[in-house]
Amino acid sequence: MANNRLTRLFQEKSGNLLNIYFTAGFPKLEDTVTILEELQAAGADLVEIGMPFSDPLADGPTIQASNQVALENGMSIRTLLAQLAGVRERVTLPIILMGYLNPVLQYGFERFCQDAAQVGVDGLILPDLPFAEYEEEYKPILERYGLSLIFLITPQTTDDRIRKIDALTDSFIYMVSSASTTGSQVQTNEAQQAYFAKVRQLGLKNPLLIGFGISDKPTFELACQSAHGAIIGSAFIKALQQPAEVRENVRSFLQQIKG
C-alpha cells in the first residue's frame, strides 16, 4: 500500500479533481519545471508528466506531435529526472510520470523507480505494461519505492477485470471515456453515461478520474458529475502552443477550466 502525495490527496479531497497532462520538454526543453510550478499556482490538483516516446501508440495527433518536438529538443528520462531534482522544495502537487514501457526498460525498471521516487514522483502510468506482468514481476518493485501504478479502464473493460484492477492498485483508476486515442472529440451520449454509471455501481475502493476528450469547462464539469475528477491532456498541449509566454498560457487555460 503506497502512502504518498497521491493517496493523501484522495483522502483529503473527494471531488472536482483536476489532473493536467503535459509532455516533458515541450514546447521547450527547459519548460518542464516552469509548467509544474505554474500548474500548482493556478490550482491543478495533480499532474501527469509525459515521458516522450518515438512511437506513442495510444496517443492522438496532438500528443504525438508534442512527443516528437520534445525528443527533438533532447528530452529523455535521464534529462527529465535531472530537471525534477530539487523540485519538491517548491512543488507539493502529486506527480505522476506517464510513458511507454520501452524507454523505461532501457533505463532499467528498478533503477527508474528508485530515481523517480528519489526526486519525489508519486505514481506511474505505463499504458503498455500488461496487468499480468505487473502482478507477477513489477508490483513488488513499485511497492519497494512507494510508487503507485495507475491502470486504465475503457467502456469495453469487463466488470471482472475492473474489479481485479481495483483490488491490485491503490491510488486511482483512469477511466477512459470512450474507445479512442487521446485528443479525440468525445460525444456525450447515453452509452457513455451508462458506462460511467455502471462503473460507479461497482463500488470500487479506488477513486475514478475520467480522461480522453476532456477539453474545456463544460466537459470537465460533466466528467466531475460522474467521477472524482478528470484529466486534461491534448487541450492543454494545444494551449501551451499559444503565442503568449508559457506561464501565461498555463494560467489562462486553468482559468478557463476552473473560472
Binding site: 501508440l57 505494461l129 475503457t154 473493460t157 486515442t181
Partner: peptide
C-alpha cells in the same frame, strides 16, 4: 513475445 498493449486494445 507477450502482449504489451494499452487497455484500449485489450478486448
Amino acid at each position: 513475445g507477450g502482449a504489451y498493449i494499452p487497455e484500449m486494445l485489450y478486448p
